[in-house]
Design a protein around this nucleic acid. Structure first.
Length: 112
DNA sequence: ACTTTGACTATAA
DNA sequence: GTTATAGCCAAAG
């Protein structure tokens, strides 16, 4: 069954399912989208997420090491950190603190 | 229709 | 242990 036709919207939907105060990795989202290995594609989709509504919490998606690689896509490099800290996610030196604890896999409860 | 890229990931030297 | 390179998938130019 196709989600919405476009792989992008599927990625957006998954990102919207990320609980507040949690983070995930591109690989996890890509895998949840049915395209494991297409982590790059996820980032690209999220890059356009700023033009998509409803808005996608792309700030909750970081690379597998917990680094805010996409911080530059928020208009301001500090905007992503600001959003994460606002949700209780501590960010230091452009990296998510306790990333392993805050890591949330969309497939955990997303297998419907 | 082909080429290049892109907010990644994993393996090799 | 750190740095380089290759593999990956899909979309935009």
């Amino acid at each position: 069954m196709s989600a919405n036709g476009d792989f992008f919207e599927l990625v957006y939907d998954i990102c919207r399912h990320i609980p507040r105060g949690r983070v995930t990795s591109y690989g996890a989202v890509a895998r949840a989208a049915g395209a494991a290995g297409a982590a790059r594609m996820v980032g690209w989709a999220l890059n356009k997420s700023g033009k998509v509504l409803p808005a996608v919490p792309a700030h909750r998606v970081v690379n597998r090491m917990g680094f805010l690689t996409g911080k530059a896509a928020f208009g301001s490099p500090d905007m992503m950190r600001k959003l994460l800290e606002d949700e209780g996610v501590k960010v230091e030196n452009d990296r998510v603190v306790d990333f392993e604890k805050l890591f949330w896999d969309p497939l955990v409860l997303g297998e419907l």
